[in-house]
């Protein structure tokens, strides 16, 4: 038996909007730790890792570890039927082939339940060890979204370079080139507006902008985004999900042959 009650149901709605374009079908894993998902996009270039910790739910009951295969497009259709202020409860029976999403309006005068069919998904779980990154950039998520959108009108690939001067996002295409440099800026009124660049070693890596743009669908979840870069590793683009967890996107770099 599984029963997870999330008072801030809009978080789950936003989470789905953040991953449904990248991944079609995925297993949601439920354990005493929390509600989680790890999935790759169909071309195995990007990976998304979601964790919503059990403490973030008002009520969290998960009698035994459960993996529920869901079509994210269908799940998104159902969650779109929940109001932004609704409380969402996820319910499933052990060994059942459906999951129920219950939506309660804040005033309790409307209660809806939507039952969705589960599916069997052969999921390949990757072990992702903790890593020391050469450079970590924290910036407003809206700024990162703007940069990815702007650069993708010029080129297909972004080169992200971190030096002591700052972080540079560059692209090139048929019509020309573009370079956007951000410098560290911590003298801001609101901490979420800060640009913080932690450079242990300079790094420069190339990535497909198409995926970066897809990751920025998570912008409504968090005011800030953290970009972790190492020359030997995929970039990690992380958005916090309120106080309860995160969405991390991993993207393999492009290399010059």
């Amino acid at each position: 038996m599984l029963e997870l009650r999330l008072v801030q149901g809009s978080l789950l709605k936003k989470v789905l909007e953040s991953i449904k374009d990248l991944v079609n079908d995925a297993n949601f894993d439920c354990s005493s730790t929390g509600f989680s998902l790890q999935a790759m996009d169909s071309s195995h270039v990007a990976l998304v890792s979601l964790l919503l910790r059990s403490e973030g739910f008002e009520h969290y009951r998960c009698d035994r570890n459960l993996s529920m295969g869901m079509n994210l497009g269908n799940m998104s259709k159902m969650l779109k039927c929940a109001g932004n202020d609704d409380i969402i409860t996820i319910k499933a029976d052990d060994g059942g082939d459906t999951v129920t999403f219950m939506f309660e309006s804040p005033t309790q005068d409307k209660i809806a339940d939507f039952e969705m069919k589960l599916m069997d998904i052969d999921s390949e779980h990757l072990g992702i060890p903790d890593a020391e990154y050469h450079s970590i950039v924290r910036m407003p998520s809206s700024e990162f979204q703007r940069i990815c959108k702007d650069l993708s009108t010029i080129g297909d690939t972004v080169v992200i370079s971190v030096t002591k001067e700052g972080v540079k996002f560059s692209t090139a295409g048929d019509i020309g080139t573009a370079n956007i440099v951000l410098r560290q800026n911590t003298t801001v009124d609101k901490p979420e507006d800060a640009i913080v660049i932690e450079m242990n070693e300079p790094v420069s890596l190339s990535f497909a902008l198409r995926y970066m743009n897809s990751f920025t669908k998570a912008t409504p979840l968090s005011d800030t985004v953290t970009i972790s870069l190492s020359s030997e590793l995929p970039v990690v683009v992380e958005y916090k999900v309120a106080e309860m967890g995160y969405i991390r996107y991993y993207l393999a770099p492009k290399i010059e042959e």
Partner: peptide
Amino acid sequence: KETQLRIEAFYSFS
């Protein structure tokens, strides 16, 4: 010429 690497090149299946 640029080559797009895949995630499996970096992490192994657990």
